[in-house]
Nucleic acid binder design. Structure first.
Lengths: 367, 367
DNA sequence: TTGCCGGCTGAATCTTACC
DNA sequence: CGGTAAGATTCAGCCGGCA
């Protein structure tokens, strides 16, 4: 893995066509791709534009495609190139609005990507609909996809997201302001450098949720480098691809100023799944429970006998704490650690406490 | 216009294939179409809740398709039939989830529909993600489209929508509960009649926004008739198409009981506003505090490290501002917002001030 | 009558480590 | 690689039972 990383142009902005540049990179080499492709706003010429007010509309030449067909071809090409360089354990995010996201989503599904969630970025401060002819277009959509449907190991920092949402699991609708104020890059004359600069908070949430420290994040439409800024701040590597030298230059200068957070503040709330596995037998071996003792369900109604080999017995049934727990309840499955309790000063205490205790002891020795 | 209306099967539920039924209706004869087509969910095995009960999944035969290609063909067929019967001044709504909405959106654009807005229905009470492997899938998407791009006269009751949103322009994200409680149709045994009954409030908003009194609203996937119930209540005509006689029967009985409104009592259906809940993580994401900073108790004796995921760490303890606050004090609970302070010009200031600040910025946008 | 508590449920593409 | 067993995992709202 290190050798692969060493051949990658880490923490750099490469100028050129993103498809050619991606094709020049080794296959299966990046952990995450974040893409903010052109939005195809000018479909069919000026008459058909969905919003023909003159509010600094997006009319740069890179945003022009003469038909849905061309846009679909373009999407298929860059999404295929992206898929090649993605690790088999990797994932991709694509952001868009109703002008392009339905095209993009269909192409992604067609070439084998598997949708994990679609996420709605709700803007606290969207541009109003000036004519009063439509609903205020107050959101954009992100697609989070794995490389294929069979893929199991996806990085998803569930507990960290739950923390961020004050103890409730994070939903698919995110409320964040648009990029403005000091964060928005301006040139000497105070004109914005890029028409669609994304807020860094959005990228931070994406990277916090679906990458780990040291991961490689590639952005094929780098623009002024919000992905790079967020990656650097969070201790991830980035690779930025951008066709326009002016944007690339602005991005490099911007990212150089970013203060990287230190390791402690990047520590994520850990999931139980990442903790070392403790067999119930270890609890017996260490003498936290003795063979011959009884363990009970949470009300003390059901009692099972603890045996020396770490199995337990209840009436005819014998086996692991999980198997017997399931059988006793007539349930298809059971987490024995939370189902069973032992008596301590007359009160029932979860055996999961014994596991925690053991983990603490082991941590000081091995880890 | 009256002659045309007289040939239409107004305020009826027709049983049969929706494409054939639509083809039997006169062209350019309906004002609005609302469609809730099959979502083409692709479920694996059973899903168990943490308490080992089984989730009652949508596994009905009508939701099964062999492939995306078959689903696309199906979509193209019914959307073309719908387009023929739509008046040139008419519009269409289609609702879906990430499983199908990207397919539907692409087909709609391909056959000439023009997207006016995409609308996000944010559920106040979605089903959680039981396994902790994804973001909670808390929304569905609606596409609002005109028959073609050139179409000028679209019914959009801008002022009514603005009223409904307390004087502010209605946004593209709508917060509404799912259909449950007394509104949910149940059979004798208390089993739900239809697996995916939509809330009437959603349909009311759609019809309030994009139809006038006396308009004809057609629903090709009528199910248990939420569109019909909302139409009748609001003084619009409906035409319901439904393949299953059982659903059609339930719909007829339901609609017959609906009281038609003559006044302006609709506002009652709109949810009340309460103070938006602000997770501590939002304070970090928005940059009001930076990861790596320290927060203190009111005397500055206890210091905790702020981490990027919105958790804080103090000695061995890590968790939410509330959890760590409680642990530090040896208390069973703690309001972290009032316990913790940050340093500002050498003085200690409550982090609750940051929450107030954020609430002010959010203003009328319900979090 | 009111309030509290436990149980049930909703369009869901929902596991992973070890042998 | 496949098979097997361990074991991690939920939020809001409605309803009924009971104090």
């Amino acid at each position: 893995m290190m050798t692969k990383k060493q051949t990658l142009p880490l923490d750099q902005v490469l100028v050129g066509d993103c498809i050619e540049l991606m094709n020049s990179l080794p296959e299966k080499s990046v952990d995450l791709i974040f893409a903010d492709p052109p939005y195809n706003l000018q479909l069919g010429g000026d008459l058909l534009r969905p919003n023909n007010t003159k509010v600094d509309a997006v009319d740069d030449h890179w945003d022009q495609f003469d038909s849905f067909r061309h846009y679909d071809e373009f999407s298929r090409d860059w999404l295929n190139a992206a898929r090649r360089i993605l690790k088999d354990t990797g994932a991709i995010w694509v952001i868009g609005s109703y002008h392009n996201i339905y095209r993009v989503g269909t192409v992604m599904q067609d070439i084998g990507y598997w949708v994990l969630n679609d996420i709605v970025w709700r803007k606290t401060n969207p541009m109003p609909n000036f004519r009063g002819k439509r609903f205020c277009n107050a959101h954009e959509t992100l697609l989070w996809c794995s490389k294929n449907a069979e893929q199991k190991a996806i990085t998803f920092n569930y507990e960290a997201m739950k923390q961020l949402n004050e103890g409730l699991q994070m939903r698919s609708d995110w409320l964040l302001p648009i990029c403005s104020g000091g964060e928005r890059l301006k040139d000497d004359k105070g004109k914005k450098v890029h028409p669609t600069q994304k807020p860094e908070a959005l990228l931070q949430r994406v990277l916090m949720a679906t990458t780990r420290q040291g991961d490689v994040v590639l952005d094929p439409f780098f623009g002024t480098g919000t992905t790079g800024a967020a990656a650097r701040r969070l201790g991830r590597h980035f690779i930025g691809l951008e066709r326009e030298e002016d944007y690339a230059k602005a991005a490099r200068e911007r990212i150089a100023k970013v203060q990287m957070l230190d390791g402690d503040s990047l520590e994520l709330t850990e999931s139980k799944r990442s903790l070392p596995r403790i067999p119930f037998g270890a609890v017996i071996e260490r003498g936290l429970l003795a063979p011959g003792e009884k363990i009970y369900d949470n009300r003390g109604n059901v009692a099972a006998l603890v045996r020396a080999d770490g199995s337990i017995a209840h009436k005819d049934a014998a086996g692991s704490i999980h198997q017997v727990g399931a059988q006793v309840q007539g349930a298809p499955a059971c987490n024995g650690w939370t189902y069973w309790h032992y008596k301590c000063d007359g009160r029932l205490v979860s055996i999961d406490n014994l596991r925690s205790q053991l983990r603490k002891e082991l941590g000081q020795v091995s880890a």
